[in-house]
């Protein structure tokens, strides 16, 4: 059973607590895993403060009252992490989104953009798709594997890199999350190893 994913909804156009989108997200991902912020600054603080969790952010584009815009929140998140999936939910026509904002969203891997007037089932389908991808990602699989170990095992030396550095489970996870060279190397090797193991299997008769 993979570790739960937090669904962080930063949107001021939803009815707090009872909006059908929130209710149904709760049904799908567990009520306790859906967190709604109407204030974009508070939402951003939460995301930045909980980067150790798997997270999907449903983000509004326009916030009034002098808060950060959705695009700014997205930029801030991306400054620190590229592993949080962000789905933009906007009430504006897509044609109204500025080109440079769209370029920024694409270049920094926004997961999807959806209209707030779309069926909520579509929005939930996007979140589920993101969750599936999140769970299938190497760092997530690895995390799921690591959390099954005791804390003292997690920090114990596990492997030695070419440069002589010693890595524990936690170090490996960290280096993958930060997408450092060693982390990327490890990720690639792990996938290669998995494929090799598959290929060694005898075909089923």
């Amino acid at each position: 059973m993979p570790a739960p994913i937090k669904i962080v909804v930063i949107h001021d156009g939803l009815i707090p607590m009872v909006d059908p989108l929130l209710v149904m997200l709760g049904e799908n991902f567990g009520k306790e895993n859906v967190i709604h912020f109407e204030n974009s600054n508070e939402g951003l603080d939460y995301v930045l403060g909980n980067l150790n969790q798997k997270m999907i952010v449903l983000l509004d584009r326009n916030f009034s009252k002098g808060e950060k815009t959705g695009i700014q929140v997205f930029e801030e998140i991306r400054k620190t992490s590229s592993l949080v999936y962000v789905i933009l939910i906007t009430a504006d026509e897509f044609a109204k989104i500025k080109n440079e904002d769209l370029i920024l969203l694409i270049n920094h891997d926004a997961f999807a953009i959806q209209s707030v007037a779309a069926d909520y089932t579509k929005i939930i389908a996007l979140a589920e798709n993101a969750a599936h991808k999140l769970n299938a990602r190497v760092d997530s699989v690895l995390e799921d594997w690591i959390v099954r170990h005791k804390e003292e095992d997690r920090s114990r030396p596990l492997m030695k890199a070419k440069d002589g550095r010693i890595y524990s489970m936690n170090d490996i996870l960290e280096s993958i999350r930060q997408q450092s060279d060693i982390g990327k190397d490890f990720e690639r090797n792990l996938v290669n190893l998995a494929i090799e193991i598959f290929s060694r299997q005898k075909p089923l008769a």
Binding site: L21, D92, V116
Partner: peptide, 14 residues
């Protein structure tokens, strides 16, 4: 208006 319609639509969809 779009925000408002979005809310109504989601509730109707529910």
């Amino acid at each position: 208006i779009r925000t408002s319609l979005g809310k109504i639509k989601r509730m109707a969809e529910f």
